[in-house]
Design a protein around this nucleic acid. Structure first.
Lengths: 141, 141
DNA sequence: GTAATTGCAAATACTTTGCCACGTA
DNA sequence: TACGTGGCAAAGTATTTGCAATTAC
């Protein structure tokens, strides 16, 4: 099994979640997709549709988000997106406003410095950021 | 009347929209608030609640977004947010995850360079970005 | 006069919860 | 055994649309 899946499940165990089949499949699905997914996408995915109800996926995502293991993103669609948070890993996204494709950007994120500045100047705690680029991809143009 | 309102209404006229009372009030409301607002907030605002139906506000926002005069933002809430786009003006936002306050950041945005790079490397058209910082504000901490 | 715009109400879409059965620790 | 989890179905909230009446141009 993918070691990142194992690590992530272990993190779940540490915060008190139980190791269930649905939990493992959810994490594996999010990790394999490599991009944020909606609740509906997740619930309809091969691994999860045979495994459990949409409400279960919803509650799992909710718990995981509460423990900082996934993050909920608003990517302009009506539905919320969820992405796995992997320690030491930060992704920004490039989204096509025409076909809706979502791609993670690996380029070094230029925002950290401003983030530190904001932390100092405003006194905000637990600061993090979300950065998305929107445009029309070559295929759609 | 605020000259920015006038300019914005003029832009609307240029793209073929009719000058209605609701249009002016919507633009004035968004401008005065200085921050993105949800459809519900807008429809319930003083100027608009007496002026028109929520569906009208919705359709106005939709048209304005289609013409690049407002932008729809996903700020983690269940409801979508809408912000006025003023040429030559770009805002990023600082959002408290506890009380939900939203504040525009005026600091020079460090992302433009990366944006240019992405434009060149990927061939995306009409590229723009959205940057938000989330954290817990001093009041809530 | 004509086409865009509006109000009202109804239909959708996505999310969230209640309740009881079930499985993990 | 005990309490977190899961399924199913119902409720909640936000968005979107149909259609006839109205209004800007």
């Amino acid at each position: 099994m993918n070691p990142v899946i194992k690590e992530t499940v272990d993190r779940c165990r540490k915060v008190g979640l139980r190791r269930t089949k649905a939990l493992e499949e959810l994490i594996a699905t999010l990790l394999e997709s490599g991009r944020p997914m909606t609740l509906s996408e997740l619930a309809a995915s091969k691994r999860l549709s045979e495994q459990c109800d949409k409400a279960t996926v919803f509650r799992l995502l909710q718990r995981l988000a509460g423990h900082g293991i996934v993050r909920r993103l608003g990517l302009h669609e009506r539905a919320a997106y969820f992405a796995l948070l992997i320690p030491g890993n930060h992704s920004d996204y490039l989204i096509c406003t025409s076909c809706g494709s979502i791609e993670a950007i690996q380029a070094p994120c230029p925002v950290h410095h401003l983030e530190d500045e904001i932390r100092e100047k405003t006194g905000f705690r637990n600061l993090y950021h979300e950065l998305e680029f929107f445009g029309v991809c070559p295929k759609c143009a």
